[in-house]
Amino acid sequence: MISKVVENANAAVQGLQDDMTLMLGGFGLCGIPENAISAIRANGAKNLTCISNNAGVDDFGLGLLLQTRQIKKMISSYVGENDLFEKQMLSGVLDVELVPQGTLAERCRAAGAGIPAFYTPAGYGTEVALGKEVRWFKGKPHILEHAFEADFAFVKAWKGDETGNLIFKGTARNFNPLMAMAGKVTVAEVEELVPVGTLDPNEIHTPGIFVQRIFKGTNYEKRIEQRTVRQREDAG
C-alpha cells in the first residue's frame, strides 16, 4: 500500500509557486476544495492561472484568491456570481478565457487520459471557434480543442482512503474526478479519511493512482449559493 497522506492543507500545497496553472474542482460552491483554497491563499503564490468551472463568490471559494490578487487568469464556463471578479476583469487585472462547459470537462479528462486534443461540435460558428481548426465528421462541423495542462489539481471528495481512492457525494462530484486525473500533482481533500481496505472497491469513483496527496479537510462550510425550498403543505 502506498500512503499519500499529508498532515494538512498547508503540507498539501507544498511546491506551489508563482505562475503555475491550477485546476480546482467544484460547480458553483458545490464540491469546491475549501481547505486547499485557504492554503493557497496562505502560500501566497501569485500570477496563477486557475481552471475552474466558476470563480466563486466575493468572499468564498476562488473569490478568496481574487481578494489577494493571486489569480492572473481564469479559465471557466460561467463567472456571473462575483462582483470582485467583474471589477478585476474590467480593469484588466484579470484575464478570462470562457470555455463551453462540456469542452472544459473534456479538456480536463483528455489531459488525464493521454489525449492531446479532440474535436467537438460545441462552439462551432461562435467566437469560441475563432482561430481553431474545423473538421467535418458525419456531415457536421467540429472544432479542435486541446487538453489542458495543470501543475496542480485540487479536488474535494466525500470519502477517501490513505492510498487516494475517492468517493464523491451527490452533485459535488462534477469536475472533481476529471481534474483529479489531470494534475501533475493531484491533491485530494476529503471529509472522511479512512484506512486502506475500508472502502468497497466497487464504490470507488476515482482510483488512487490519480492522486498524489490526500488529507482530511477541516471546518467545511459548504455554503449554499441558492437556497431553494418548498413548503411542507405543498407536499402531494
Binding site: 451527490g170 449554499i224 437556497r227 431553494t228
Partner: peptide
Amino acid sequence: PFPFEGEEDADLINAGKQTITA
C-alpha cells in the same frame, strides 16, 4: 423538486446552483 425547508443539502444542487432533491 426543491427540498423541504431544513432538508437542503449543499452537495445536491442543479445547474442553476439551487438546492434540489433526487
